[in-house]
Design a protein around this nucleic acid. Sequence first.
DNA 1: ATAATTCATCGTATATTTGCGATTATTAAA
DNA 2: TTTAATAATCGCAAATATACGATGAATTAT
Lengths: 110, 110
Amino acid sequence: MAFSKKAEFKDDEIAIAAFAKAISHPARVAILKVVAESQSCICGEIVEVLPLAQSTVSQHLKELKEIGLIDGTVEGAKSCYCINWVAFEKVNNIFKQFFEKTNCCKDGCC
Amino acid sequence: MAFSKKAEFKDDEIAIAAFAKAISHPARVAILKVVAESQSCICGEIVEVLPLAQSTVSQHLKELKEIGLIDGTVEGAKSCYCINWVAFEKVNNIFKQFFEKTNCCKDGCC
DNA sequence: ATAATTCATCGTATATTTGCGATTATTAAA
DNA sequence: TTTAATAATCGCAAATATACGATGAATTAT
C-alpha cells in the first residue's frame, strides 16, 4: 500500500534518495541550471524559459527550496531565487562519496 | 493533468533526471550498495537485507536493470545481480559534470 | 483610488510510484 | 515424481507526484 518504509533504511541512504529525488525531474534540473547561470533570477524569468505553467513552476521551486538547494527572497512584487551554494556543495559531496564508495568495490578493495 | 512534458526539455536534463530518479528511493540506493559490496549477489540475499517483500524488491531490481545500472543473470532457480560498472561510471560522470558546470557559475565564470 | 503585475497557494484531475499477496514458471531436492 | 525453493509477474490498493486553472495577497503602475 505504499506505506513509506523509508524509516527502516539507513540515514545516508535516505539522504541520497531525497536529494536524488529533488533533481529527478527535468524541470527541476532546468531550474537549477537557469538560476545558477543568471546568478539569481526572478520567478517570472524561470517561467518564461520552462514549458510549464506558472503554478507548476512555483511548485517545483518550492520543492527545491524545501530541500535547501535554492533560496528565495521576496523583492517587491517579485520573487528572486538563487542557488544555496553551501547546500549545493553538500549535495555534490554526498553524491561524490556515494559513487566513490560504491566504485571502490569494483576492484574488491572493501 | 500530469501530461508528461518531458519531451520539451533538453536531452541532458532528461538524462540527469532519469538517472536521479533511479536512485531516488532508499531501497534502490541500498540495493546498489549491497550488490556492489558483494561483487554479485542473488536476489534472495538482497531481500533478506531489505525491509521489503520479495515482490517489491524484485520491482526495484527491475528498475535498476532497466536503466542499466545493474545486470541480472539467471543461475538455476536463482537470479544473480551485479553492478554494470560501465553504466555506473557513465552516470557518475553525468552527475559530476552537472555539478561542476553548475558550480562554475558560482564565481560568474560563465 | 484603481488597475495591472507578480507569484504563492488551493483545488482538482490524472499519472506514476510504492508495496504486498497471490500466482506462475523454473529449477533443485526428496 | 512429488515437493520445496526461488524469483518474476500480475492485480490491486494506497500514496505521491505532476500539471493546470482559479483564486488571493501583495506590490507596482496609472
